[in-house]
Write a protein that binds this DNA or RNA. Sequence first.
DNA 1: TAGATAGATAGATTTAAATATATCTATTTA
DNA 2: TAAATAGATATATTTAAATCTATCTATCTA
Lengths: 116, 116
Amino acid sequence: MKKKKFEEIKKLIECIGLNVDVNEYIMGLKKKKEDVLSTVNFKEKVNYHKALGHKSRYLIYNLIKRKEMCICELDVILDLAQPTISHHVKILEHANLIEGIKSGKFTHYQIKKEID
Amino acid sequence: MKKKKFEEIKKLIECIGLNVDVNEYIMGLKKKKEDVLSTVNFKEKVNYHKALGHKSRYLIYNLIKRKEMCICELDVILDLAQPTISHHVKILEHANLIEGIKSGKFTHYQIKKEID
DNA sequence: TAGATAGATAGATTTAAATATATCTATTTA
DNA sequence: TAAATAGATATATTTAAATCTATCTATCTA
């Protein structure tokens, strides 16, 4: 066992008390970790939180929530270059939060998944 | 009016149609933007999405959801240095998602706000 | 009260994300 | 079918976040 791990466990024993089976306790903790990581939508959820965890994207998402929009409409109201807007929109789309419906030259983006 | 803005509006006219009052339409869009930005908890929400939009933090948050934990417990199960764990925990705390209750040398972190 | 220790903070480095300019592609229309 | 154009992609640069090592602070206990 690595030295670092040994130090960690020494701390843990003081925290949880001496009258607890340390190995069992650690196995319990590790199981919790595996349970969380293997939750069905774990990655998906991290992804949409990441997508919404940026001011411009949260704004774009909520604008589209109020009314479907094309890039050209967003371009008028946001202080960002068009490729930057397209980039953010794509991130929201990949996170399955919005979807783009193409109609001729224009693409109308609408809400696909409602998140607050 | 800047050249860029003029180009944007030219696009917009084609998108929304010629028989619409463009200035009024743009004002409507800008109002939507202001409405969204001035929503009461706008910043707070961006903040907690940002906090949860990282694999390690979403994991830590969900571990604490299952059971209150101290840094030393997280230290045993995560493949991160202790200061890195403290750093992530602090971000979750600042986003009002968890809170730390100090008890002697140990600090027990528990859920303050439930987010999925 | 001196030594030990949980967890926070400081500072430096690495890694990732945001943004811009330039260009490309698909589609429309004259 | 050639010119125009919405929006995507490529690439480079800037900015921000993640992570580490070293150190500090508050608290416990021997």
